[in-house]
Structures are given as C-alpha cells and as structure tokens.
Design a protein around this nucleic acid. Structure first.
Lengths: 194, 194
DNA sequence: CTTTTTGTTGATTGACGAGTCAATAAACTT
DNA sequence: AAGTTTATTGACTCGTCAATCAACAAAAAG
C-alpha cells in the first residue's frame, strides 16, 4: 500500500536510525541492514533512497551539524551583548544533547571520516568556519584586532574540552566544561584589553 | 629456517605495519592480511603472535603512546625551569612526527576505540593523566593553587588545537599550533599571578 | 637421536555484508 | 483502461575477512 511522498520520511527515519546505531556500536561498523531494521524498512529500501552506505553517513553528519547549528542560533537569539552571546555559544556547545552517546560517537567518527571523505571534510570545515565567525563577531567589540586569534583559541578549546569530557568515562559535566572555557575567555579578555 | 627469538621482532613489525595501514586507510578498516603482508609474514602468523585483531590495535595504541611519552620525556630532559619545561611539553605535543598521517589517523581512531574498548580507554586516560601531571608540575611554581585548573585548560587546548590542525587539510603548521597554546598560557599566567 | 618447543604457512571454515535485481503493488497520468 | 511513476522487498551475487587447523621445518633439550 504505497503511499506517495515517502522519500523524505524514509530518509529522515534512516538518518535517525543511523545515528542511534553509530551510538550503539561506537563506530561506523554498522550494517545497512541494522540501520534499515531500526528504521522499520528493508535494507533494499535504504539502498534505494540513499545510493550507498557512505551517503547515509554523510546525511547523518549533515543532520548532526544542522542540530548543532540550530542550537547555537537558538541560544544566540535569546541574548544580547557580546559577553552573553559568547557564553551562549559556549553553553550550546556543551549542551546535554551533545553529550548523548550517539552524538559523541557521531562526532568522533566524523572526525575519522573527515580524513578521507572529501564531503565529510567539507562539512567539518563548514562547522569550524561558522563557529569561528560567530566567535569573532562577539569578540570584535571586546578585543578588536585580536578577535581572530582569540576565536581560534576558544574554538580549539571547545573541541578539546568536549573530547575530554566525552571520553572521561564518568558522566560528563557540562557546567565544568563551560567553566573551563569561560576561564580562558576571562584571562584572554583581561590581557588583550589591558 | 626458523630462527629463534622471533616473537618480539614479529610483534614489533606488526605494530609498525598496523600503524602504517591505519594511516593508509584512515580508519580501523584494515584487514589482518594487509597488516601481515606489510609486515612480511602470513596472516596466520599475526594471529599466532597476537590473539586477535583487537590485540594488535591495542599494541599499536600502546606504541603510539609510548613514542609520545618518550618524546615528552626527551624534551623535558633538555631544559630547566618551569616556563621552558612548559614550552617543551607543548612543542613535543606538536612535533612533526605527531602530524604524520599515520599518527593522526591512529589518534583519531583511538579516540573512537576508547568509547567501547576498556583497555583503549584505560590507555587514553593514562596519557591524559601523565600530561596533566607534567603540566601541573610546571605550573605549581607559576600559579600555585590554580595549577590544576590551568593544566586542564592547557591539556584540552592541546588536544583541540591538534585536532584542528590535523584535520585542517593543508599542511599542518606546528609553529602556529604552539603559538596558540602559548598565547593561552601567557594570558593565564598574567591573570593568575596578578 | 628422539622429543619438545618455536616458527611458519596454505587451506579452510563459517559468517557476514554491500549492493543489485526482478517482481509485486498501489497510486497518479493521460 | 493502459501506461508510468513511486514504494517496497526477498532473494541473490559476489566478495571479504577473522580465526582455526593441520602440517611442515628447524632448533633446543634430554
């Protein structure tokens, strides 16, 4: 009983299922059958909508990135002024959702993918550029010409703190992650404006 | 013509070959046959010396960690005083060898492994604790009670900068990576000692 | 010199998995 | 109503790969 217009629904279900399965496996060692099953369809249908497994992974990566982007935009819309905006970006980067094991696994594996799959690398760079540009925008009024350099530092620190917190073993602590980055920001602001 | 005492030689060759193959593939999607072939032996022999593929990966991880540890120790032995020691650690973390594609791939994939393989997680934590302890040792005389917190920041920043530099696409720039971290250190020192 | 230990591999097993295809069925078009 | 497009799947192909085993070779031990 084929209803029409299934494509977007099926694709969305597959993307969601892919992320769950990557979380379960902790790696990209996930079969199309597993994904399809979790999404409630046959493996053949998954191949029908996405051409290949790699395409499925890339769609999942886009989805993760889109969610993160939306989270940041949402947080930014709610506040005003350079410093609060900076805090909003940082908090969004360490939101509870980002520490769910599926999300962590997705990010780690996307780093791995970015080494060899050009489209994955492109997407990762897109994320990095957007973060950089958001940060620079907040930092310009605070540290002027230093904005670029400081933003690079904050961006890298966010990634590094995330990595450590995610792999810590115990339940990750968003608050302390945010605090670590804010501590850095405070130090830089004091120095670059002195 | 079986010479005796082959075990350590074979194992070392396999570990080396494993790292090369991981670099080539960019992932852990590497067959035991590929590894064994590159190491100049049959796949069966690889299974004979290491019980399983996972054991081979863990041995490779230990090797990478050991090299990094040795690099840091070597750099530390050559200098004296807190600040130079700090610089030595940071420089060692961004040495050219660490940006070889095999090494990058190994690290990224070890992060992935650390999610699910207990021994991998253990090794990663060992690395993090050692770095932390090295940093705290340098920082104590500089920032006293803040040493722990500052060390966490530096450690995370090192990982984050490494990640970004490694995945940048263009040839990674050790000097600017070091500079980014040192910039952070300078800011923190100024603040925490003021 | 024969028994045990160590080194070594080709062949095999047993399982799994990506991607294709042919076939079925319902909807939409003309 | 005939033809086309979209949805859907079971079965199949073709390949791969981790791990095991039986067998052979050489050195050391007794």
């Amino acid at each position: 009983m084929p209803k029409l217009g299934m494509e977007p629904i099926r694709k969305a279900a597959l993307v969601k299922a892919t992320i769950v399965e990557i979380g379960r496996a902790g790696s990209l060692d996930v079969t199309v059958s597993q994904i399809a099953k979790r999404a409630g369809m046959s493996a053949a249908l998954a191949h029908h909508y996405f051409g290949s497994k790699e395409d499925i992974f890339l769609a999942a990566m886009r989805h993760i990135l889109a969610i993160y982007g939306a989270e940041v935009r949402g947080a930014l819309a709610a506040v005003d002024g350079p410093k609060p905006r900076l805090q909003a970006i940082i908090r969004a980067s360490f939101s509870a959702g980002n520490f769910r094991k599926e999300t962590v696994s997705a990010w780690l594996n996307f780093y791995v993918l970015a080494q060899t799959v050009p489209e994955a690398r492109r997407l990762l760079r897109l994320y990095q550029r957007r973060l950089q540009s958001n940060l620079v925008h907040c930092l310009r009024p605070l540290v002027g010409a230093h904005a670029g350099r400081v933003a690079s530092g904050i961006g890298a620190l966010i990634d590094g703190v995330y990595l450590r917190e995610a792999l810590k073993g115990e339940a990750p602590d968003s608050a302390s992650a945010v605090a670590t980055v804010l501590d850095f920001v405070a130090a830089e602001l004091k120095e670059k404006t002195a």
